[in-house]
Design a binder for these strands. Structure first.
Lengths: 121, 121
DNA sequence: GCACATATGAAAACGGTTGTCATTTTCACT
DNA sequence: AGTGAAAATGACAACCGTTTTCATATGTGC
């Protein structure tokens, strides 16, 4: 089992705590850090195992990783300009937990993303 | 521009209104309906255009299509056996609407999916 | 029947992700 | 320092879902 390469984590931080594997790889290349794409994927996998990062999916299916540990939050994204607002999801957390226990599920995670049109568009 | 093949839609209905392109294709094959994978994808694309179906992503990135139009609902999916429970999302709808108006967004849609481990797994 | 548009599906291309494997690095122990 | 085992690395190929291409089939209106 491989350990996470610390430079991957620090690049993810630098990216605003929200990026895909390919983006992290590109960022590191641009900075002149030499690393293989494979290692980026492996590091993210390992960070995921250790629950240092979360994964979710963009609309096109690409996996994006974000730091977790800080308060869990969701996003409100504008469909036309891409503007993104971070949302506190306290209500959702409770809802998820309730639904899960009602149905006998354990270890429940959730995704909740909102998208619409912002005031400027 | 291609039209949707009606057998694709009826297979999606038969699958419980919730399936991936590959699953629909497999289902049809098993039933002896001859169809190409390409046509399944194209039909789903067209159903999507016409807003007959919704698309969202499984955890592994595979796109799953569901009938929409019936009451909007969410899903609680077991990570290990795939068991799926349909969830009424009244609370979420309100939450989404509030958040949206607080931030000046219009035409807001949302995805919210829960996944965990069911009682049998 | 004939032209013209549309529908179809096999095969190839594509893009993100994962697996393979030979090489390099790390490190505990002499 | 020297050595050897274990872990990490990265080029490359395999994989898988999806999209594109293209040649063929099936209409549809004249």
């Amino acid at each position: 089992m491989s350990r996470s390469n610390p430079r991957v984590l620090s690049t993810l931080e630098r990216a605003g705590g929200f990026a895909s594997a390919q983006e992290i790889y590109a960022l590191m290349q641009r900075d002149g850090q030499q690393i293989g794409l494979t290692t980026v994927y492996r590091s993210l996998q390992s960070l995921l195992n250790d629950k240092i990062v979360d994964v979710l999916r963009r609309e096109d299916g690409e996996a994006i990783y974000r730091l977790c540990g800080e308060s869990h939050h969701h996003h409100l994204v504008c469909k036309s300009c891409g503007k993104t607002v971070e949302i506190e999801g306290g209500a959702i957390e409770k809802w998820a937990k309730n639904i899960a226990s009602e149905n006998g599920f354990r270890d429940v995670g959730h995704t909740a993303e909102l998208f619409g049109t912002c005031s400027n568009c």
